[in-house]
Design a protein around this nucleic acid. Structure first.
Lengths: 191, 191
DNA sequence: CCAATTACTTGACATACATCAATCTCATTT
DNA sequence: AAATGAGATTGATGTATGTCAAGTAATTGG
C-alpha cells in the first residue's frame, strides 16, 4: 500500500512504533478515492470515519438557518479531516464534508480506531500531539477573527497557506476567513 | 495532599491508572496559591508550567499593538490553564495569565510533564482526549464568532457557563465574547 | 465547441458593532 | 467616612463589512 507512506511517516515522527505496529496500522486504514463534489458526510448523519487525505482537497462546512454555507476547515494533502465531535461521540453531525478536488483518502472507522489505540497504545501520543497542535491553531484563528481585520486575516492566510490560493476558489476562501466573496474581492483590489 | 483529589478523579475517568501511578502523579504536581491580579505569566516570558485550577478563576489574554487587552480564555475550578504553545515549545509567550480571584493551583513544569508521560504513558490517553475536546470546543467558538451575532454568543454563554456570570466582571466577559463592554451592556438592556 | 454553470467583480445602500466621552454605581483602601 | 478606582451604563457618531442587484469572466459538461 504505497499510499499510506506519509501516514506512517507522521506517526513515526511523533511516536516510536515498531515494524509490527506499522503492519497493524496499515491494516486498520482503508484506502478510498472520491470524486469532486460527492459529499463524504451530510449533516444529520453520524460521522463514521476519520480520514487522512493522501492527495486532494476537502472542505467541511455547516449550513445555517438561512441556507448559507459556512466553511470552517479546508484541508489538503497529508492532513486529517473528520467531524471529531460526531466521530468520537457517534452522534449525528451538524456538518458536511466534501471534496473540492478528486481525492485519495485513507479512512478508519470509529470502532477500528478505538481498537487500534488499544493494540498500539503508543499512538495515543501521536494523537495527543496532533490535537494539541490543532487546538493551539484553532485558538490563533479565534483570536484572528475576533480582533483582527479581514485584511490582516487574508494576508496571514496568504503567507501561511499559499497553496490553498492556487487550488481553491476564492468564494470558499472568503467563507473560511469569515467574510463574503464581495468583501474578499474588495480586499484584493485594494492591495 | 487533599487538593489534588479532583485531578486524579479526572485522570481516572479517561485513563486507567494504578495506585502506583497515582503516587507518581501526586508527586509530580506542586500545589500553590496565588492572589488576585498577581500575574502568573507575562508576555515575553516562557510559560514554564501547566496549571490545574483546584479552586479559583483565571484569565489569559494578549495585549495588542494599541495596548488593548483581548481575553481568549476564562477558566475556573477543575480546569487546566497555560499557554500550550509556549509551554510545549518552550519559547516566549505572547500571552498573559492572571487570576481574577485568589486561586489554588497545581502546577507541573515542562520537564517534569514530559518525564511524567514517560513514567505513566497511560496519561497520554487522558491528554489526547482533553485536547481533542478542547479543539472541538475552540472550533465551536470559532464558528460562533464568525457567523453568529454577539447576542447569540451572549445567550449561548449564559446557558453554557452561567457560573462565569456570577464570578467574573462583565468587562472581561465582553472581551471573551469578542465585543466591547459598551456593546455587552446594550445587549443586556435589550433583553 | 457551445451552453450552462460557477466564479468573480462592482456599485449603492444597510447594519452591527466600535469608538469616544460623559456619567453613575459600588467596592476597596486609608 | 472620605477618597479612589474599577465596573457599568448611556448617547452621539463612525466604520468595516454585509446585503442586494447587476454584470463580466472563466470552467465544466454534454
Amino acid at each position: 500500500m504505497a499510499e499510506d507512506h506519509k501516514l506512517l511517516y507522521y506517526f513515526r515522527k511523533w511516536a516510536p512504533i515498531t515494524e509490527n505496529d506499522e503492519a497493524i496500522i496499515s491494516n486498520a486504514f482503508e484506502p478510498m478515492t472520491i470524486r469532486k463534489k460527492n459529499e463524504l458526510l451530510v449533516a444529520g448523519e453520524v460521522c463514521h470515519y476519520l480520514y487522512f487525505i493522501t492527495k486532494g482537497c476537502m472542505r467541511s462546512f455547516y449550513i445555517d438557518t438561512k441556507g448559507v454555507e459556512h466553511i470552517y476547515q479546508i484541508r489538503m494533502d497529508n492532513n486529517w479531516i473528520s467531524d471529531l465531535e460526531s466521530f468520537f461521540s457517534q452522534t449525528p453531525s451538524k456538518y458536511h464534508i466534501e471534496p473540492l478536488e478528486d481525492s485519495h483518502l485513507l479512512r478508519i472507522s470509529h470502532e477500528r480506531f478505538e481498537q487500534l489505540l488499544v493494540e498500539v497504545p503508543r499512538l495515543e501520543r501521536y494523537f495527543r500531539i496532533l490535537f494539541q497542535k490543532a487546538y493551539v491553531n484553532a485558538l490563533h484563528r479565534l483570536n484572528g477573527t475576533m480582533w483582527e481585520t479581514a485584511l490582516d486575516r487574508y494576508n496571514e492566510m496568504l503567507k501561511e497557506q499559499p497553496e490553498v490560493f492556487q487550488r481553491v476558489p476564492l468564494i470558499y476562501i472568503a467563507s473560511y476567513l469569515g467574510i463574503t466573496p464581495e468583501s474578499l474581492s474588495r480586499i484584493r483590489r485594494q492591495k
